[in-house]
Design a protein around this nucleic acid. Sequence first.
DNA 1: AACATTTGACCAGC
DNA 2: GCTGGTCAAATGTT
Length: 300
Amino acid sequence: MENSLVDSVIREMEQAFELTTKLQSLVELGNYSDTQKESARMVSRELLQTCNATLSMLKSRKTNVKIEYGSQYQLAPRKVPIRRDRRRHYPRKVVTVTPYSDGHQWRKYGEKKINGCIFPRSYYRCTYSEDQRCEAKKQVQQQDRGVPSLFLVIYKEEHTCKPMAVEDCQSIEQLQLQGCGEYTCNTSFPLTQVTASATPPPVDSFSLRFDDSEDSLMSTAVRSITEGTIAWRRNDKGSVSCSELASADLAFLDSTEPLHPSLSVVHDVDDEDHSPRSLGFDTDFLGFDLDDIELFGTPY
DNA sequence: AACATTTGACCAGC
DNA sequence: GCTGGTCAAATGTT
């Protein structure tokens, strides 16, 4: 498919994405029963996931990257990391469940009820907007009542301030509080280093969620560890658990598109009481290549 | 007291 | 006139 046609289809799909979120809002405002609303939410979520998946496929195709969808279970470690174009394009949109931890500090300066939306839109500017004349701003708007809720975050203008690095974190709580920027963390944080040759940890898999901020998509990659081999999988679930391994797609990882994902590590759920043992942390992915993810291990 | 958030008012673009 | 983005005084939090 030639690029211009791909572009047109991408635009149409993005339109579908937006219309779905609008439709979702109209349903929420409408006079429907809770059951009907819940059904509508489920359909909306599936629609959004389909849009995401289609868009990512189109975008990976546009880059002319050869991807063999059958070979996703054997991702050979790259000797030379792919250098990606890390220039950001603004405004950029992110759909995420963690709109407030993106490695930067923000100050709220306004909130507005937006036509046709149930949830108000909040306006933030960089905490250092005056001190360092940083022009960065973002808008945050909750998209649904789901658990976890999805938020649309629109970033405007790039940060010119010095980002806060997280070092010597002592706990996951501290990591979350500080928003976690680019880091290498030597702590009691229950993530250990894992390399390709390491003994597999005592869980089947853990998952990594990428918020592909460049493309308004939330994507999910799941790294599973089976018999010592490491594979990457991707699904497009809004939230992830170890058992939720969906269709695989290496496009996300092998694409030469300028991806700027943030990273979350989601732990699995306790087998006995089903309480989430989840470790969530986000980081702006600017500091390292996707290859570096292999430095982050798993649990307990 | 200093800083952050809230919220109604104001303004520009359509 | 309507809408979305920003301002700034009031209020809340540390």
